[in-house]
Write a protein that binds this DNA or RNA. Structure first.
Lengths: 202, 202
DNA sequence: GTCTATAGACGGATAGAC
DNA sequence: GTCTATCCGTCTATAGAC
């Protein structure tokens, strides 16, 4: 593997290879992300893949890691907003990453390293989301024992995942009713105040 | 394609090929379900695949159809039970089919025919589930305008999907709390009575 | 850092014998 | 209905030149 701690040399073939892998995987599935295909899209020869990544699995893992960190950064940045619940909903219903994350889940089912990586990533996401929900519920004086924040976190992301998965195949049955319901629910838990600043309206 | 309306001839190679495809797809992913591999597992030569199915895609579609009909039958049978909400939860948290359905979703993203088939299947499932929830809510005198049955249906299946997907990679964070919460919720909506027989306890 | 050339396995699909 | 033989393309990965 080439220089990592030093200044990025040359044209960034490594980065282009990773970007190409992600794109092909999202467009045509993990099986289509072969050394030849990703190299072609990156504008290099297929053998260069093995210069940067010992095996194709190593390439996949690298792409997943980077992609996961990017997603976490997006999430952390967004959740500083006034309305964490709504932001959580919007992030999780964003269909741009649906296909890709489905591919990762499928890959994780039969590639141990991918599964392990996906697990730690999912745990970090859950931690961030649950922290945000905790802040909101606490600000409204909700009993966190009776209504654990992690539960609302899962209910919200679960509903969002259904919407994304179904939209991916053109199914929209019940989505509008769900969106309306969630919107009403979220509206009951606004957070435009500092967490320690009030007692909770209802 | 061979005799369909007549009596099942011979050894059932066609059925074995379909079963083998489903198994390999679940165990090793759709990319591993090649004509040679499924034929080997079914105990026939790979060329026989093309006798029964013009292309590999046709084989996949056939397997998905049959598998979908089986799932629908299971669901319909289970939902005649006393406690439809609990049955719905149990069916959807069954992790035996998680890997397989993830593969189908991934395949659906880049094979139009699979996506179309998955869509009609998902719609039929949603219809059955929503009908069951409607029955329960109506029996308890819930205002179906304020709380649409399809919404509870999606919330329940969404939470279940999260549990299944995460369990598949060994993640269990918050699952116990979610199960407890759902269990309590379901307990509030028992249905051991005939739908038209009472007014609702509260 | 990027290339050419190549090994060796496996893929979908067809022709035609039995 | 099931097989043998085969075409031809693609795959991961390596050796070694520049």
């Amino acid at each position: 593997m080439p220089a990592a701690g030093k200044a990025r040399a040359s044209t960034g073939a490594r980065e282009r290879l990773m970007a190409a892998t992600e794109q092909i995987m999202g467009d045509e599935g993990y099986a289509a992300a072969t050394s030849r295909r990703v190299a072609e899209l990156a504008g290099v020869k297929s053998t260069l893949v093995y210069y940067y990544f010992p095996t194709m699995d190593d390439l996949f893992v690298a792409v997943l890691c980077e992609s996961g960190e990017r997603a976490l950064a997006r999430m952390r940045a967004a959740l500083t907003a006034d309305d964490p619940l709504r932001v959580l909903w919007l992030i999780n219903t964003d269909t741009r990453y649906t296909r890709l994350s489905t591919e990762w889940m499928a890959l994780a089912n039969h590639r141990k390293v991918i599964g392990a990586e996906l697990k730690v990533f999912a745990e970090r996401v859950r931690d961030i989301e649950t922290a945000a929900v905790t802040m909101v519920l606490r600000a409204h004086g909700v009993d966190l024992t009776e209504f654990p924040p992690v539960v609302m976190s899962i209910l919200l992301t679960g509903a969002a995942r259904i919407i994304c998965n179904e939209s991916a195949v053109g199914m929209v049955q019940g989505h509008e009713q769900l969106r309306t319901f969630i919107e009403q629910f979220i509206a009951h838990y606004p957070l435009a105040v500092r967490p320690a600043d009030q007692g909770g309206p209802g």
